Amino acid sequence: MKRATAPNELMSTEPRLYRVVSARIEELIREENIQPGERLPAERDLATKLGVSRTSLREALIALELGGVVEVRGGSGVYVSEQATPKGEGAAAGPGPFEVLAARRLIEVEVAGLAAKNATAAHIDAILVAVEQMEQHHEHSSDSESADRNFHLAIARAAGNSALTGVVEYLWNQRGTLWHKLKEHFQTEELRQQTLPDHRDILTAIASHDVAGAKAAMRNHLDRVTRTFSRG
């Protein structure tokens, strides 16, 4: 009798979409003989040519940049790297940043609703502390990111379901090299400023035990981040 394939085995063998797209971009570079230092087609044209979404393309380009194949120049475009050989750094084997954002939107919106329903005074205090830390350190990337993580995990704990806390923590742990390179290229001061009131809105709704308001505020926040990182 054939043994059933375990879910984790499927996850380990299924190719990440951004890796598939990355391979197609490398093939296009070879086929069209795009030389080092030359510019690739614009993102919109390249996405159409390959038949993929802009977000999948952007993940693939970031992965190729980490591998030393291309160079992303803000405001100018994407160029084949001048390096004779790839740097060999590569991207981690985890999910792409837009995959993670989509999963977070699915999970954390519902978690925020549960937090609004179940949060105790102690839970609300923990969320407030994280918000105040983000506001205090918003100009310092590492401190702000740590406070942001604490904020979302405090909400997950307030939901009252340890399994969901584990899921939210797992998703945050997927913010690897691809995520940070994407953030480096597309994070803006406007986004940093706008996410501060976003977090306050989420806190206010949870503290008021407003389930619908908490879900809407979390959805608006994650949608804002996704729009900013995917716009071109």
Rank of each mutant, 00 (worst) to 15 (best):
1 M>A: 10
3 R>G: 13
3 R>H: 11
4 A>Q: 09
5 T>N: 07
6 A>V: 11
7 P>Y: 00
10 L>C: 10
17 L>G: 10
17 L>H: 12
17 L>P: 08
17 L>C: 08
17 L>A: 12
18 Y>G: 10
21 V>Q: 03
24 R>T: 14
24 R>E: 15
25 I>W: 01
29 I>C: 04
32 E>H: 05
33 N>Q: 10
33 N>T: 13
33 N>A: 14
34 I>Q: 03
43 E>Y: 04
44 R>N: 10
45 D>Y: 03
48 T>F: 02
52 V>I: 11
53 S>I: 07
55 T>R: 09
57 L>C: 10
58 R>S: 14
59 E>F: 01
60 A>D: 13
60 A>T: 14
63 A>S: 15
66 L>T: 11
66 L>C: 08
68 G>P: 09
69 V>A: 13
73 R>D: 12
73 R>M: 07
76 S>I: 06
78 V>H: 00
79 Y>D: 12
79 Y>F: 15
80 V>C: 10
81 S>R: 00
81 S>N: 06
81 S>E: 07
86 P>T: 09
86 P>D: 08
90 G>F: 02
91 A>K: 02
92 A>H: 07
92 A>P: 05
93 A>E: 15
94 G>V: 05
96 G>K: 02
98 F>A: 11
101 L>M: 14
101 L>P: 12
108 E>Q: 09
108 E>M: 02
111 V>E: 03
112 A>L: 04
113 G>Y: 02
114 L>V: 06
115 A>N: 07
117 K>D: 14
117 K>N: 12
118 N>K: 04
120 T>S: 15
120 T>N: 07
120 T>H: 05
121 A>M: 00
121 A>N: 05
124 I>M: 00
124 I>H: 00
126 A>S: 15
129 V>N: 01
131 V>N: 01
134 M>Y: 03
134 M>A: 11
136 Q>R: 11
139 E>T: 14
145 E>N: 09
146 S>G: 08
149 R>T: 15
150 N>Q: 15
151 F>P: 06
152 H>L: 01
154 A>H: 04
156 A>H: 04
159 A>M: 04
161 N>E: 13
161 N>Y: 08
163 A>W: 05
164 L>A: 13
165 T>H: 03
170 Y>K: 07
172 W>L: 13
174 Q>M: 09
175 R>S: 06
176 G>S: 04
177 T>Q: 06
179 W>K: 02
179 W>C: 07
183 K>E: 15
189 E>R: 08
189 E>Q: 14
191 L>D: 11
193 Q>P: 06
194 Q>A: 15
197 P>G: 08
197 P>E: 04
200 R>S: 06
200 R>G: 09
203 L>Q: 03
204 T>N: 14
204 T>H: 07
204 T>P: 06
206 I>D: 05
206 I>F: 01
207 A>D: 08
209 H>C: 05
211 V>Q: 11
211 V>G: 07
211 V>R: 10
214 A>M: 03
217 A>H: 05
220 N>T: 14
221 H>A: 06
223 D>V: 05
223 D>E: 13
223 D>H: 00
223 D>P: 01
225 V>C: 03
225 V>K: 00
226 T>F: 09
227 R>V: 12
229 F>V: 06
231 R>C: 11
231 R>Q: 14
231 R>Y: 02
